[in-house]
Nucleic acid binder design. Structure first.
Length: 297
DNA sequence: CTCCAGGAGGGTT
DNA sequence: AACCCTCATGGA
């Protein structure tokens, strides 16, 4: 990972052959600490505050160096190739068309792990609130662009926090899960390298050893923090979409077997970039299900 | 009031 | 394995 480097506003051009949409990437629900204000997106990645804006092929940013920004937004990935392998039917094609340029970012593993503990049985605005509260309470305060911002708290800060303090951050019954997971992470600093080196299936099994991390959250962490693109997280929205359009999953509520079955189908059907198909389908969930969820922006 | 949201853990068959 | 049940929180 390139070291973040605070400096003045910078700019670079995205290659003409590469698709990228900052808006779709940051508003699709994969990240919780980005907010759009006028033409700028403000966010904190781990302990690094950033702001980014896109004007066509031009990316303007400050708070880090170019290498970090390109790495974070996965601009090294050939998105056109990915899209061509998953665009197999009108459903995905429509999702890709509506969410053109969406990329899966490279989240910080610990931040991603902790955030998705707070994402279970909840909705995106609530998750964003929880993560913000945790950061304000236990993260390091910094000054950025004239505003006070907070880094995501390192595992030590969460590990030594009281359950009451975590509950005050609206963690609810997840508070003890988060604390236990923070302690486990501190106890096992090699966890990131181990997960990264393991194949998808075993990596997911390892992640599920963390308290508060089940199949779905583990799949999200593998996809958003470890670039294991065969991961296919199934939440209630994806379940609905897969039932309606592909006849997959369990009728009614999502069962354990239904979850596995959808994942198997998706990996076989979409291939090794099944996770990208999932993100496009999720991003397009409102039109795919005929509902109007709170869409992150 | 009820129902739902990027589910997971624990217990009982 | 396959089903229960409960968990905290806010918005619609």
């Amino acid at each position: 990972m390139p070291a973040p480097n605070h400096s003045a506003e910078k700019v670079f051009q995205i290659d003409r052959s590469q698709a990228f949409s900052l808006d779709h990437t940051l508003s699709c629900g994969q990240v919780f600490r980005w907010e759009r204000s006028a033409d700028w997106w403000y966010g904190v990645v781990g302990s690094t505050p950033l702001r980014v804006r896109q004007d066509g092929r031009k990316i303007r940013f400050s708070g880090a160096d170019r290498e970090f920004v390109e790495w974070y937004f996965s601009l090294d990935l050939n998105l056109r190739d990915v899209i061509s392998t998953i665009s197999l039917d009108p459903v995905v094609k429509d999702a890709v068309r509506r969410c053109r340029g969406l990329r899966i970012v490279r989240q910080q593993p610990w931040e991603c792990l902790a955030s998705y503990i707070g994402a279970t049985y909840s909705n995106i605005p609530m998750v964003r609130r929880r993560v913000e509260l945790l950061s304000a309470e236990f993260g390091e305060a910094q000054e950025f662009e004239g505003k006070k911002v907070y880094g995501f708290p390192p595992p030590e800060k969460i590990a030594e926090a009281s359950i009451e303090a975590l509950t005050c951050c609206k963690m609810g019954y997840r508070a003890p899960y988060l604390k236990k997971t923070a302690i486990k992470v501190m106890d096992d600093p090699a966890w990131e390298d181990r997960i990264q080196s393991l194949p998808y299936r075993e990596a997911r099994k390892e992640l599920q050893e963390f308290d508060g991390i089940g199949k779905k959250a583990a799949d999200c962490v593998l996809l958003f923090a470890f670039q294991k693109y065969e991961s296919f997280p199934v939440d209630v929205w994806i379940h609905r979409i897969m039932q309606k359009n592909y006849g997959q999953g369990s009728p009614g509520a999502l069962t354990d077997r239904g979850y596995e079955q959808i994942g198997m189908f998706a990996r076989e059907y979409f291939g090794k970039y099944a996770g990208y198909a999932q993100e496009y389908l999720y991003c397009n969930r409102q039109s795919a299900t005929g509902s109007t969820p709170a869409c992150g922006r």
